[in-house]
Simulated assay, not measured.
Amino acid sequence: MHPTLETERLLLRPFHVEDAKGMMELYADPDVIKFTADKPFNTLADAERFIAEYDQYDKYNMGRLSTFIKQTGEYIGWCGIKYLADKNEVDIGYRLLKQYRGKGYATEAARACLDYGFNKLGLNKIIGMAMQDNGPSINVFKKLGLKYSHNDDCGCHPGVVYAITKEEWK
């Protein structure tokens, strides 16, 4: 099963090749990638290849999901839970195009993903990782009920890890 989720305003579904243009725009935004270890896609074909090779859905029945405004069908970014094999943890993550930030979409989408993880997949804990200076992402964690757990290098910069358990989610 590949998860498709709906909220009041949003539709979240697995990546499709036609999402490559929106994803390329998302990863080209310096304000997005300054808080990640991600690199922009060089070509549309690179974004399409990333989508084609994305294996979280088949391996773990979860993954990042392309996110759209339900009413208009506009691509706004992605959100979802992802299994991190190197940490043996499940991480909530989100990235939104600039014009859709500050409207509550990240919180709304992430809430649906956490609910899926805890209530459909039976997960016991989900973490969120952010660079220490990424205040907007940390604020979303707090709105969702995640609590500070510990510091981490987040791949290349000083970062923080927040966490929530299934019991805390209820």
Rank of each mutant, 00 (worst) to 15 (best):
L26H: 07
P136H: 04
I76D: 07
D31T: 12
P30S: 13
H157M: 10
Q71F: 03
E25C: 09
H16A: 06
D29W: 00
N151L: 14
G155C: 12
E74R: 15
R111Q: 13
H2G: 10
G22E: 01
D38Y: 13
H150S: 14
T107G: 07
A163W: 05
M1C: 10
Y57K: 05
H150I: 01
P40V: 02
L121V: 03
L146F: 02
Y54Q: 07
R95H: 12
L65M: 14
E25F: 00
K125T: 14
Y57A: 07
Q56K: 14
K166C: 03
K125Q: 15
Y75D: 13
C79M: 12
F68C: 11
K166N: 13
G155M: 09
M129L: 12
N139A: 12
G93D: 11
H2Q: 15
G128K: 01
A109R: 02
K147D: 00
D19H: 11
K147N: 04
K120C: 12
R9W: 14
G93R: 06
H150K: 15
G128L: 03
F50L: 01
Y100K: 11
I164C: 10
G80F: 08
K70W: 07
I138Y: 01
W169V: 12
G117V: 03
E89Q: 15
E6L: 08
D115L: 00
Y105P: 10
H2C: 09
K103H: 14
V32L: 08
Y75P: 06
L12K: 13
P158A: 11
T165Q: 04
N61H: 15
L114I: 04
I138S: 02
L144S: 02
A130N: 13
T165S: 15
T72R: 08
M129Q: 10
N61D: 12
S66C: 09
P30W: 00
Y60F: 15
K21M: 01
T67D: 05
